[in-house]
């Protein structure tokens, strides 16, 4: 190497500006169990901007990738549900902090994915960050709002408390690839569930940008797993999977009925899609309660 460094340039540089540095492009991969694997199938799908320009290749997850994601989500569920609600809140807030630091990156992804103006993209990204903050505040209040002390007739203490249902498969909204995505994922994990998310099929790249923020935000691996690819290919596997406890059909489109029907086999809880959701509106508990169980404990009272 020393030779070439000291040797005179054989071809004198032509006059004109220095060639621009060639950008290093990012490979968009899946996010499963805290790692960023390619699809085991080796397949990808081309992703175009809203204007139709080629942006990148995204991994095209297979049914096997979906099953692997269920395994990762199940493994993460126990420890995540066992964390104190306050700590889950701290971690969700940390996600907001990490997204804020990548604000410009998310704006660019949103402009590319949705074809909106930069100002609109700023609003979308800000709303997505604030959505994490909103759900960070819910983690330790869900039980305070939904729990009850039940005055049963007899010498018993009787109380009911909400518990996470378990592993939730989330079909993210197709037309709101960042704000819609955050709006469906955050409530699921705020309550202590873990998630397998199928990103918007047409605009999956903001979901991978989100995964990069999640991976640096103290969120344990496997709590959120993000798959890109064809919804129609992956969703039926998740809907019918016996180790999936609940299913959010937000991005299911025409598949919704078929998936709900498949979910019935193991009585997987189903959250049906809203006809035209307003992702900017504050959601309250509407997206939290569908993924909760109620546990009632009777305790005998007596000397």
């Amino acid at each position: 190497m020393a030779d070439t460094a000291t040797a005179p340039d054989p071809a004198p540089a032509s006059p004109g500006p220095e060639p621009r540095r060639l950008a290093v492009r990012k490979t968009y991969k899946l996010y499963v169990g805290g790692a960023f694997p390619r699809s085991e199938s080796g397949r990808s799908i081309p992703v175009n901007s809203a204007e139709g320009a080629h942006l990148a290749h995204a991994a095209r997850a297979s049914r096997k990738d979906a099953r692997d994601a269920v395994v990762a989500a199940r493994a993460a569920f126990g420890p995540w549900a066992a964390r104190t609600a306050q700590l889950r809140g701290q971690i969700l807030y940390r996600i907001a902090e990490m997204m804020e630091g990548r604000h410009a990156h998310f704006v660019q992804e949103t402009v590319d994915a949705q074809g909106v103006s930069e100002a609109t993209a700023q609003d979308i990204v800000s709303a997505a960050i604030d959505r994490w903050v909103y759900y960070a505040g819910w983690t330790d209040k869900i039980a305070q709002v939904l729990g009850t002390s039940n005055p049963v007739s007899g010498p018993f203490e009787n109380s009911s408390a909400p518990q996470p249902t378990g592993v939730v498969a989330v079909l993210a909204p197709q037309d709101s690839p960042l704000l819609g995505l955050v709006s469906v994922v955050a409530p699921v994990i705020a309550a202590g569930n873990t998630a397998i998310v199928v990103a918007s099929e047409r605009a999956p790249l903001p979901a991978i940008a989100l995964a990069e923020a999640l991976a640096t935000s103290d969120l344990p691996g496997g709590v959120v797993n993000i798959l890109t690819g064809r919804t129609a290919e992956i969703a039926p596997t998740l809907a019918a999977h016996a180790d999936v406890n609940a299913l959010d059909l937000s991005g299911a489109g025409d598949l919704a009925t078929e998936l709900e029907s498949a979910a019935a086999a193991t009585l997987t809880r189903v959250l049906r899609r809203e006809p035209s959701p307003d992702w900017h509106a504050l959601p309250g508990l509407a997206r939290i309660t569908p993924f909760l169980e109620t546990k009632t404990v009777w305790q005998a009272v007596g000397r």
Partner: peptide
């Protein structure tokens, strides 16, 4: 402060 921060926009509950 962290706990009550979360209540600020949930007062209707």
């Amino acid at each position: 402060f962290f706990y009550y921060a979360g209540w600020a926009d949930k007062l209707p509950f």
